[in-house]
Simulated assay, not measured.
Amino acid sequence: MTQPQLQIIVGSTRPGRRGLPIATWFHGLAVKHAGFDARLVDLAEVGLPLLDEPRPPQRGRYEHDHTRRWSETVRTGDAYVFVVPEYNHSYNAATKNALDYLAREWAGKPVAFVGYGGVAAGARAVQALLPVVASLGMVPLSGSVHIPFVRTSITPEGRFESAPGLDENATGVIDELLRLTTSLGAARTTPPVG
């Protein structure tokens, strides 16, 4: 049996972003966990323009190659972790844009968040994303990972150093994602009765 695929999505695309070293740290924990086929997906590399599809994504009829590539990437995922910054008490535009491009590809799959920022530790970004992912039919975990004062956690070499207890918190999120992925995956593959 193949492992479910966990996509760790780097939500920030701006130069100097802290999301990539954080996502790299989380990816390392997911690989060590060994319950998932963990993949790092960087929205800066995906390179989506501002939503430019003429039809609603629910139809799944995409005109542009970048949308078809993004659809295929997301479709192969069984669970997602969005690594998101908090900007102005909310999430960033690149994350929302990436979510809005698609519909059916996200539905029925679990999602968790690693939020980061200043004193609020990305909590407001995560809170604002919950109704968005719910409207896409995703199943958000009740717990998230929050990183306060993120600037102090990045080394001069650009590596993320986790605070005491953060690795355990993140591993707990991965455990819960695996439980939920297994349950939801079984529900998606079970034929309806009747």
Rank of each mutant, 00 (worst) to 15 (best):
P85V: 05
S144F: 00
R151S: 14
N92M: 00
S162D: 08
T155R: 05
G137N: 13
L136K: 12
V114C: 08
V139S: 09
S153Y: 02
V132E: 01
L102Y: 03
W106G: 03
A120H: 15
G118T: 13
A170Q: 05
P164D: 11
A134S: 15
F149A: 15
S153P: 03
P148S: 14
G165Q: 09
E157G: 08
Y80A: 03
G137S: 08
R104V: 03
G115F: 08
S135I: 04
V139W: 04
N88A: 13
L180W: 12
E176V: 04
S153K: 12
N92Q: 09
W106V: 09
L136E: 13
P110T: 02
N97H: 05
V145C: 06
T155Q: 05
V133D: 06
P140D: 10
K96V: 09
P164W: 03
G137R: 10
V139H: 11
A128F: 05
V139Q: 10
A121R: 13
L136I: 10
A93Y: 13
D167I: 00
T171H: 00
P131S: 11
A121H: 05
G108Y: 03
G118K: 11
D78T: 10
D78N: 15
T181R: 02
D100P: 11
F113W: 07
V84L: 12
L141Q: 07
